[in-house]
Amino acid sequence: MQSERIDSRALIQRLKLEPHPEGGFFRETYRANGNVTREGEGALRSASTAIYFLLCDGAHSAWHRIRSDEVWHFYAGDPLDVHVLDAKGMLVTHRLGNALDHEDAVFQAVVKAGDWFAAVCRDANGAALVGCTVAPGFEFSEFELAAPGVLEARYPQHRELIARFGHKT
């Protein structure tokens, strides 16, 4: 079944999205008033945050990691793949999309805290609007883009995939 096409430029304006450092466009839509602390830390964090995230025009979300769990939610457009590498080098790819239209897709996928991940639309000319919910809440101070060559050296069995979704400077 054909996915509903997204007018990326109109959606960027309508949702007031801005370029994200990892690629794509985003806007924070929610930051909990309540705070939590991580076990063993004293720093307060919002209990949860949420964003809209749009991948379009051949862009990808470059390899990065954060210190909180992140739940990805599919909203509209084409399926995308969320590639996740855990500390042991195990690779899992979640196909995020409309599960009613795409048998191999799911509406939600979880990336565990500390795992490296990257995302890309299955169709290079496609666009996908998703949401990401992070708990404890997202802080840019805990966002880490993979340095060139570091992941390839650590996980040589996934070198080709890692190189495809590196950060574009």
Rank of each mutant, 00 (worst) to 15 (best):
E152P: 13
C121S: 08
K88Y: 12
T93I: 13
Y75N: 03
A32K: 01
S48N: 00
V106D: 04
H167Q: 05
G114D: 15
K88I: 12
I51F: 08
H64A: 04
W63F: 11
N35I: 02
L161W: 04
G23I: 10
H167C: 06
M1T: 11
F53A: 05
T169H: 14
P19N: 14
R159I: 03
P19I: 05
H167I: 05
G166M: 11
L85G: 04
T133L: 11
D7P: 02
L100M: 15
D57G: 10
P148L: 07
I51Y: 00
E160C: 01
F140T: 10
N125S: 12
A118T: 03
K88V: 04
E103F: 10
R159D: 09
A50T: 07
V36M: 01
R27G: 10
H20G: 06
V92F: 12
L15E: 12
E4K: 07
K16N: 15
A118R: 06
Y75S: 08
S46G: 01
T49P: 02
A153T: 06
K16E: 10
E28Q: 02
H73A: 05
F117M: 15
V150R: 08
M1P: 11
G126Q: 08
S48V: 00
S3D: 13
A43K: 09
A10M: 10
N98R: 01
H64W: 01
G58A: 13
E22K: 04
A118G: 09
R122K: 12
L100D: 09
S61M: 03
A43T: 15
D69P: 06
G34T: 03
F117E: 11
E103H: 14
F107N: 13
W72C: 01
V150Y: 06
V71L: 12
G34E: 03
Q108C: 02
R14Y: 13
K112P: 01
E4P: 04
L85C: 09
I66P: 01
D81V: 09
G89E: 08
F53R: 10
G42V: 14
A124R: 14
S48H: 00
V84A: 06
G24N: 15
Q108W: 07
Q108I: 02
G114M: 06
A50H: 02
G42H: 15
L55G: 02
A127N: 01
Q13Y: 05
E160I: 13
A118N: 09
A50Q: 03
D86K: 07
H60C: 08
Y75L: 00
L100I: 10
R164K: 09
A153N: 12
G40F: 02
Y52G: 06
V92Q: 12
V106F: 02
Y52F: 10
I162W: 10
D86I: 10
A105F: 09
V150S: 08
A43H: 12
I51D: 03
H73R: 03
E28C: 02
R159C: 07
